[in-house]
Amino acid sequence: MKDFDSLIGIWNEQKTAPVIDHREVITHYKDSREKLSLKFMKEILLMIPALIMMIYLWFAISFNFWTSYLGLAIVAGCCIYFIVIQIINIKNVASSNTLFDKPQDHIQFIQKFRKSRQIQHTRNYKIYTLVLGFGLSLYFIEFFYQLNLVLMISMVVATLAWFIVCYFYLMKIYVRKEEKRFNEMLEDLERLNEQFKDEA
């Protein structure tokens, strides 16, 4: 039978030690800063070709229908929204510093952050898909009047089928998976939050 003082004796005998030194930390810091900048660059580089394409279509093709211009603007808006949200997220993660707060406050911040991410990943993504679909539909209206019947029907069917699969199948699987993951995470955070309440 050992008492707690004996356990402290055992603890003091341990040879466990970190395998990293201060130089590795500094190197890692510099690397991670570069990685973050690269991530920013990647997001911006993704946005540029998409926007160039939209601007090109807007000016190069003389559309007869106003719906084509509106559709194009909506699709471009969706692209910009998607990229801006990605960049805001990266920036928020990089600049948020609640690590100095009390554990309970830090956990509460993480809970809030996760909840907002959950909304973004589920509700906002649904809205995003619907708006993108609406924009593309408007854009295709003019094509329907200019293409032959078979081609037009094929395009309508293919576009509709793609949206049905995306929205009613892929999206449902994605949302279910995300919600399960987030709920588990929130449960864990809730448990930790309880543990750090100032009650004996």
Binding site: L99, F100, D101, K102, H106, I107, E184, M185, L192
Partner: peptide, 19 residues
């Protein structure tokens, strides 16, 4: 104290993010 605080919060976040 501050280093411990950061370490504790890092541990808590790590467990949650990586499950």
């Amino acid at each position: 104290t501050w280093i411990y605080r950061i370490a504790v919060n890092t541990c808590l976040t790590y467990l949650k993010s990586e499950k």
